[in-house]
Amino acid sequence: MENIIEVKNLTKDYGQNRGIFDITFSVKKGEVFGFVGTNGSGKTTIIRHLMGFLKAQKGQVNVLGLDAWKDSCEIKKSVEYIPGEIAFPDLNNGITFLKNQADLLKLENMNYADYLIQKLQLDPSANLKRMSKGMKQKTAIVAALMADKDVIILDEPTTGLDPLMRETFLEIILEEKKKGKTIIMSSQMFDELETTCDRVALILDGHIIDIASIDDIKNSKKIFYKIEFKNEKDFKDFKKLKYKIIRTQEKYFQYTISISKDKVSKLFNDLKNFKLKFISEVKQNLEKHFKEVLLKVYENENKSNQKSSKKEVKKNDK
């Protein structure tokens, strides 16, 4: 399959460790690609490069085989965008804004826009300045999606929407996905990325830490169980069986373990000898996956910090 978006070694250094560093990823045609990360981690900066609003310091950004900075106008013919910050032009109401936007897009057929308006239950005749955050977001969604182009770039598109509307919006995204569109979206909500995306990138301090495939996570061969024991003896004895323990909560005599699917019957056999309070399966999801990844990152950092501090101590001794 052909790559719609290709980003190689993209770097934009704003100084003081801010910016994005050495970003590399690609998005295939028809794929839905997500970004997740804390505030200020660099999601929006990457998206701005894709849109040609920022010029890369290092590396390459290609969209549809064209340079995102130089050919940004050409690229926009097949790209739709919902900006992260919703601020409308100085116009009266939603209808004027949408019509104006259609003029800019040279769009004559408003059928799809009408469909979106109905689906989102938007009243576009409201005054733009008095709209609530959710209404503004809906208006922005309609304005971006109405042209029905092949590539959709969304920067935190669900902020401000109530839970019901979020569902509706995700439905729309899934519809678009079915049409075969390539979608890139950033979000802070794992669940919505999980329902829509094929792959999700985790960004931390301007670096891509991990790119996870949702399919892989869902169809993982591992199963997670949470087990609580009745007394301390059993709790300690279980440890000797050498199952892979992910999390230990001594207070409650609790373990969370991960085992491959084929060892489930062995586990239950072993557990016959212990007095349990309960056992429950913990479903694996994106959030858990990334938490594991982050834990590893922090552990590595701590180790390296300790090593470096030990070195410093040695230096001091000398």
Binding site: G52, K76, V79, Y81, P83, I86, P89, L104, L105, K106
Partner: peptide, 20 residues
């Protein structure tokens, strides 16, 4: 308002996300 204001508020994005 024609340029800096729209860049500052972000509304320029709606213009520049079209083939303009």
């Amino acid at each position: 308002g024609l340029l800096a204001g729209q860049v500052d508020s972000g509304s320029m994005a709606y213009v520049l996300s079209t083939p303009t």
